[in-house]
Amino acid sequence: MGFGDHLREIAQGFQRARTEPLANHPLAALIRQSWPSSLRDSLGGRDAERYQFVGSPGQGQWSAAPWLAVLLHTVTKSAMGGFYPVYLFEPGFQTVCLVMGQGAQQLTDAVGRKRAGVELALRAQQMRANGGRWREQGFNEGPFTTLKFVTTANQRDYAADPWSNTAAFGKRYAVSALPEDAELVADLRAMLQLYDAMAEQRILKFSEEDEELSTLSAAGELPSGSLDGAKKVIVHKQIERRHRDRKLIERVKKQLGVECQACHFDFASAYGSLMEKFIEAHHNVPISTLPDTGAILKPTEADFMVLCSNCHRAIHRAGCPDLMEFKKHHVKGHFYKS
């Protein structure tokens, strides 16, 4: 059975299969095993070895529609994040699309569905801008309608589905008139060439950004509103790591003291001298002024501020404003001194 045969069988049987238990279902096994294997075999050679082929009918329960992703480990560790070529069925299972899509789950878990939908649409624009000559390869920007977050019973939800905006470009096939496997594979090879070129640019670091956003969310440091503030904090933390110097930090604490400059909590007064080291140094230099090649930083208020751990986390959540703005709009604790 060829790859096109698997596409037809899935399109014709998936909606009925969804009314039956997922566990040990033969169509689920075909989607997870035979479908990816047929695509791998069709590619053959070194191409088949370079990528990971992942097919899914759902996890624990049937999804609204199955998908098959082709992953490059330098771009993403799993289908939950990053970007990759993926086969998706559209409403009604009359059409199947090969698109340059994105993993949404990790981002959604970190920032919520609404903000993730906005960000994924912006990322799709970036992918089109950095995707090379995809139009000349016969691909278009859609729109392509995903079934991932809607039920097949309520087609009124399809047009409003925000995940329809996450595919950057691709090609649609009618299931009733699928081309031969040779043409399907030729289209996939063209898509993979674009994928490889995008990966080599190292510009679209979506997977790494999602990991950073997950870390901010888990630490309670994720700013509210649009993700612009969160991205600023991510860059801020990256620069802090790049310019981390223990001796310099010790000099900062010695120079600026052990009292939090935001809420004025004094570690030495509260706990004694043994706890002085728990005051933290926060980078106070505007990010735009720090070159990637390095910077000469001094243990002064021009470059740093000292904060307690709570205020340090809170200033990140606020988007790293300067000290006066942070104190004016965000510090309301009883340690605050006017």
Rank of each mutant, 00 (worst) to 15 (best):
Y195M: 10
G225S: 08
S207P: 05
S217N: 14
A116V: 05
P36H: 06
S164G: 14
E209C: 05
A190N: 15
E240H: 06
A104P: 04
P291F: 13
Q238H: 13
P26I: 01
M127R: 10
M1L: 10
V285E: 00
P143S: 12
D41Q: 13
K254G: 07
R18N: 02
L213D: 08
A174V: 10
R135Q: 08
T108C: 06
A168F: 12
T146Q: 08
F206I: 15
E280V: 08
E90A: 11
R251W: 00
L68S: 11
G44R: 11
S78K: 03
A281D: 00
L204R: 14
A64E: 02
T76A: 13
F3H: 02
L274K: 08
A190W: 03
L122D: 05
R133P: 01
P321L: 03
Q52F: 05
G13M: 02
R135W: 02
W163Q: 13
D157H: 14
V99S: 07
R251E: 08
Q61H: 12
S309N: 15
P143I: 05
Y336M: 15
A182W: 14
L7E: 01
A318F: 08
K327R: 15
G220L: 09
E90D: 07
N140E: 12
P36I: 06
D157F: 14
M80K: 14
Q261I: 03
T74V: 04
L107E: 08
Q33V: 15
P26L: 01
Q125Y: 08
